[in-house]
Amino acid sequence: MCPMSASLDTDLVRRLVAGQFPQWAGLPVERVPSGGTVNAMYRLGDRMVVRLPLYEGGAADVELEQEWLPRLAPLLDTAVPELLGAGRPAEGYPWPWSVHGWLAGDNPQPGALSEPALLAQDLAGFVAAMRNITLPGAPPAHRGGPLASLDAATRAALEALRALPEEGVDCDSLAAVWEDALRVPGWDGPPVWLHADLMPGNLLVADGRLASVIDFGCMGVGDPACDLFPAWNLLPPDARVVFRATLGVDDATWARGRARTLSQAVIALPYYRTTNPSMAHNARHVIQSILGEIA
Score class of each variant (00 low, 15 high):
15 R>T: 05
173 S>E: 15
9 D>E: 09
179 E>G: 00
290 I>Q: 00
287 I>R: 12
5 S>N: 11
257 G>E: 08
172 D>N: 10
37 T>M: 14
252 A>Q: 12
286 V>W: 06
141 A>C: 14
267 I>T: 12
109 Q>V: 15
85 G>E: 13
228 L>S: 04
35 G>Y: 04
231 A>I: 08
224 P>S: 09
137 G>R: 03
170 D>T: 01
59 A>G: 04
128 A>K: 13
153 A>P: 00
247 L>I: 06
149 S>D: 14
59 A>Q: 03
160 A>T: 01
287 I>L: 15
188 D>L: 10
276 N>G: 05
204 L>V: 14
85 G>T: 11
292 G>A: 11
90 A>R: 10
295 A>C: 02
236 P>L: 07
276 N>F: 03
191 P>W: 01
9 D>T: 02
177 V>D: 12
134 T>K: 11
261 T>I: 08
159 E>M: 01
288 Q>R: 15
131 R>A: 07
126 F>R: 06
213 V>Q: 03
18 A>G: 01
34 S>K: 00
251 D>H: 07
225 A>R: 15
213 V>E: 02
51 R>I: 03
83 L>A: 13
263 S>H: 06
225 A>Q: 13
102 W>R: 09
131 R>H: 14
140 P>S: 14
84 L>W: 04
131 R>T: 00
273 R>G: 03
151 D>S: 09
122 D>A: 03
92 G>I: 08
173 S>K: 09
226 C>M: 12
222 G>W: 04
100 H>C: 05
283 A>S: 13
205 V>W: 08
19 G>K: 09
90 A>Q: 10
137 G>H: 06
241 V>L: 10
29 V>Q: 10
84 L>E: 11
200 P>R: 02
149 S>M: 04
66 Q>H: 09
230 P>V: 04
10 T>D: 13
115 E>M: 02
255 A>V: 00
22 P>I: 08
106 D>T: 11
267 I>V: 14
197 D>Q: 08
146 P>M: 13
143 R>M: 12
20 Q>T: 03
123 L>T: 12
223 D>H: 12
44 L>M: 05
56 E>L: 10
126 F>W: 09
2 C>A: 14
282 N>Q: 10
3 P>R: 06
60 A>M: 02
81 P>D: 11
263 S>A: 14
227 D>F: 05
141 A>S: 15
44 L>T: 05
91 E>T: 07
259 A>N: 00
134 T>C: 02
282 N>T: 13
188 D>K: 13
182 L>Y: 09
148 A>L: 09
170 D>E: 11
165 P>N: 12
113 L>I: 06
260 R>H: 02
134 T>E: 10
40 A>M: 07
99 V>I: 15
49 V>I: 07
